[in-house]
């Protein structure tokens, strides 16, 4: 199946649209600001402002990385566990898990973070900022990952499970050698999507008392009254996330074509 290239919008419409966008952009820049490259550099890419501050930014990056790596590993493991338990079709376990899944899918990460970090201390349960972030992010994303694994495992033809049992393999062996390896391949795009989501959600922990990348950038930016640190941190985020996003989109496309 080749990529769709049907000409629905004739060339002249496209040309007009492009022209329109350029005109609007030009007018906006003219009306709202001065198109002055030096000024733009001074505001957004001011390296003098950043001098001596890179250390703080880098330590923020390191903390973000720690958060992300720990959360990704834990949420994948938890998600796999959730999927395995869901497959067993035990009514009690199923009800518990579905309840957990729907709850996590419906709650915004920010709200959950604030409740865990600011609310629970009122009950004397104190989690550090790092722990709160990891707990919330892991639980929420494990729900999605669990669903992905489950649909992957269930998509594998039943005959393979039966053939595996017929050979005398236990359910655990069947999962380990037959079902999960195949499911992993099918599930990789959704998995990658969730991992990207984990990395993006680490930025939300800037609300808590932890100096990850975004918080570090905000601190410097407020102190120096210049948005350059924010721009720099955005670059850092994008440096990691854009290649990952492109990779994921390629994986998604690949999967659609091999259906």
């Amino acid at each position: 199946m080749s990529i769709h290239t049907n000409r629905f919008t004739p060339l002249w419409v496209q040309g007009l649209a492009a022209l329109g966008v350029l005109l609007i952009a030009g007018w906006a820049l003219q009306h709202y600001g001065d198109i002055d490259l030096e000024r733009i550099r001074h505001i957004f890419f001011n390296m003098e402002v950043m001098e001596g501050q890179w250390g703080l930014l880098m330590s923020g990056l390191w903390i973000t990385t720690e958060l992300a790596v720990v959360s990704i590993i834990l949420s994948t493991i938890l998600g796999l566990l959730v999927a395995i338990f869901r497959i067993k079709e035990n009514k009690i376990i199923n009800v518990l898990l579905v309840g957990y899944l729907e709850f996590c899918r419906a709650t915004p990460i920010l709200v959950a973070l604030i409740v865990v970090y600011f609310g629970l201390p009122f009950l004397n349960i104190r989690f550090s900022a790092f722990e709160s972030g990891v707990i919330v992010i892991v639980f929420v994303h494990a729900a999605y990952i669990g669903e992905a694994f489950r649909s992957g495992i269930m998509a594998i033809h039943r005959t393979q499970t039966e053939a595996s049992y017929a050979l005398g393999m236990t359910p655990r062996q069947t999962l380990q050698y037959i079902l999960v390896p195949q499911a992993f391949r099918m599930v990789l795009p959704s998995l990658a999507n969730q991992w990207i989501g984990v990395i993006k959600d680490t930025a939300v922990t800037s609300l808590l008392a932890i100096t990850e990348l975004l918080k570090a950038a905000q601190i410097i930016a407020t102190w120096k009254a210049n948005p350059t640190p924010l721009v720099m941190s955005t670059f850092l985020y994008l440096l990691i996330l854009i290649p990952l996003t492109i990779l994921t989109m390629k994986l998604e496309r690949n999967q659609k074509l091999t259906r």
């Binding site: 957004f44 990207i196 990395i199 993006k200 959600d201 930025a203 939300v204 800037s206 975004l214 905000q218 930016a221 948005p227 924010l230 721009v231 941190s233 955005t234 985020y237 994008l238 996330l241 854009i242 990952l244 996003t245 492109i246 989109m249």
Partner: peptide, 18 residues
Amino acid sequence: IFFRAIPAIVLVVLVYFA
């Protein structure tokens, strides 16, 4: 690609502060 990659909170902070 750009807007799928950028975290929402980073974008909002940028737009509001920068």
